[in-house]
């Protein structure tokens, strides 16, 4: 098997000495969509930013390797990183309008992404920008190229962001909640587009999301994070069918969905995520876990294989199936 496009190995991110991401390992293969899921504050977005070294000043990259096609991004200086961003790896965010320059026609913004990395003429860049719009299914590309972001809808702005992100043909696309700000019918269009582009170009996608519906729709594999650590990782189908970590199981059971009685009680996760400063030696989910036993509070469970490619960090993962049935 070919080496993965992105290989994150024991990544650690600190804020003021406390680890907000602690030992995150994950890999994304060519043409694969890997979803990194978790609730707000679990460290998923910071991990995504860390890959492109876009971390806010308060967050320190304190350990681990981030291999993009074998090159360790964690050790590069900022000028080398500027050459990587947009060329080898790109990122799109939740709010496309906040990512676009309001004073520049979107066509120029797409072309600029190309001329920043490749020596092409302005004319050639414009031609390629137009081609890009056609390939992502935008009708009337000439009119769109001349428009400013305020003239476009949120869904259209997100397509422009995707065009900017992909025009240099990067190997990796990081999509941080790309459809959270969009309506469902527009979300369906954008997810469809991402799926299609991955199939055509073999781009590796790291998808950051909190929405299990989006995960069920397009992810090949899923990494579930809780309080800065990986709780579980599996193929999407396996994760939904047979979760092995109580957090994953409860998260799935807490969602209103087809097949459960309307107005019936949904499973809940009591309590709140502990702050990074309070992490002790034990499992970070122990304070909220219905399966907790003494060992969980003392000793942190390692990520162990349960099936090929299905890992969970729980001392009591053999009991998790029971939890799902009760919920």
């Amino acid at each position: 098997m070919a080496a993965p496009v992105l290989d994150i190995d024991r990544l650690r991110l600190d804020i003021g000495g406390a680890a907000v991401v602690d030992g995150l390992s994950l890999s994304v293969d060519e043409g694969e969509i890997v979803a990194l899921v978790g609730e707000s504050g679990c460290g998923k977005s910071l991990s995504a930013l860390a890959v492109l070294r876009l971390l806010p000043d308060a967050v320190r990259l304190a350990g681990g390797r981030i291999l993009l096609e074998g090159k360790d991004l964690a050790s590069l200086d900022m000028s080398a990183m500027a050459g990587i961003r947009g060329r080898d790896a790109s990122i799109i965010f939740q709010e496309p309008t906040a990512s676009l320059d309001p004073l520049m026609p979107v066509g120029d913004q797409i072309a600029e992404a190309l001329t920043a990395h490749r020596s092409v003429s302005a004319q050639e860049a414009r031609r390629r920008a137009r081609e890009m719009l056609v390939s992502i299914g935008i009708s009337d590309p000439d009119r769109r190229l001349a428009q400013y972001p305020f003239e476009l809808s949120g869904g259209m702005c997100q397509r422009i962001m995707i065009a900017i992100a992909l025009i240099c043909g990067p190997r990796l696309l990081i999509a941080d909640e790309p459809t959270t700000a969009l309506d469902v019918t527009i979300q369906a269009q954008i997810l469809h587009l991402i799926r299609q582009l991955v199939a055509e170009r073999g781009t590796a996608v790291l998808l950051i999301t909190h929405d299990m519906g989006v995960v069920a729709d397009i992810a090949d594999r899923v990494v579930v994070m809780y309080a800065g650590r990986v709780a579980e990782t599996a193929t999407a189908e396996e994760l939904f069918r047979a979760p092995r970590h109580p957090y994953t199981a409860l998260l799935l059971a807490s969602m209103p969905r087809a097949g459960i009685m309307p107005k019936s009680r949904l499973a809940t996760i009591e309590g709140t995520v502990p702050p990074p400063s309070s992490h002790g030696a034990g499992c970070r989910f122990a304070s909220r876990c219905p399966l907790v036993e003494d060992r969980c509070r003392i000793e942190s469970p390692p990520l162990v294989d349960h099936a090929p490619g299905h890992l969970a960090a729980c001392w009591r993962s053999d009991q998790v199936a029971r939890l799902g049935a009760a919920a």
Binding site: V184, T185, G213, A216, E237, F240
Partner: peptide, 20 residues
């Protein structure tokens, strides 16, 4: 209804794709 993704990969991927 077709656009709203269901949190179940088997059901979701079996749904007819009709993008508006």
């Amino acid at each position: 209804l077709a656009a709203a993704p269901e949190p179940d990969p088997v059901r979701q991927r079996a749904k007819p794709r009709r993008v508006l």
